[in-house]
């Protein structure tokens, strides 16, 4: 496991120590560690010569940042308008109740992190959730719970008539991002 100091050095170097790139740096850090550990954030503040207060503010403002480790499986449930009209909030309540987890939080057994989002842009499948990069659409509270229990047991959920497909991971590793060169330019 790479030391905080070294990891922060690498990340900051990737962005030429530009303070404006703080959010991409934090995204890379979270992709590497699974969440944003306090120690790493403090080191980042030192390296960029900005107050830790500012980094803490950014970490708690944006919904995708986690200050605590996430569960084995992340449930991304869409609460966009179309999904909502088709009962997504009942699915949300059911998940919260069944797995004893709050929005943004992780279940006590560390199996699930529940992350409701406002619109995944897959409205034709409403109500829809993504678990472990697989889409599950046309959900009901019961079917969602069943799928999740199967996932927790390590069983691949039964294929419905609609074919689920792998979506690209949201939190790629920093190395993979670098390799794909997401538009970063090196200043000479």
């Amino acid at each position: 496991m790479i030391q905080p100091d070294e990891l922060i050095e690498q990340i900051v170097a990737c962005y030429d120590e530009q303070v404006g790139m703080l959010i991409p740096m934090m995204q890379d850090l979270q992709a590497e560690c699974g969440y944003l550990p306090a120690e790493h954030l403090r080191r980042l503040a030192q390296k960029l010569h900005i107050p830790i207060t500012r980094i803490y503010g950014v970490a708690t403002f944006y919904a995708s940042f986690r200050l605590f480790p996430k569960g084995e499986h992340t449930i991304t449930l869409c609460l966009g308008t179309v999904c909502y009209l088709k009962g997504a909030n009942r699915i949300s309540e059911a998940i919260q109740q069944e797995f004893r987890v709050t929005p943004g939080g992780t279940s006590e057994d560390k199996k699930f992190t529940f992350s409701p989002v406002n619109c995944l842009g897959a409205c034709a499948l409403a109500p829809v959730m993504i678990v472990d990069n697989e889409y599950y659409g046309g959900l009901s509270p019961e079917s969602a719970i069943e799928i999740l229990h199967n996932i927790a047991k390590g069983k691949k959920p039964p294929r419905e008539d609609q074919q689920a497909e792998k979506a690209k991971s949201v939190g790629k590793t920093r190395k993979a991002e670098k390799a794909k060169s997401v538009g970063k330019t090196r200043k000479k």
């Binding site: 790139m21 959010i23 995204q27 919904a63 997401v182 538009g183």
Partner: peptide
């Protein structure tokens, strides 16, 4: 051009 991702807001 450089790409920046949002962070959920």
């Amino acid at each position: 051009i450089r790409i920046c991702r949002g962070a959920g807001a």
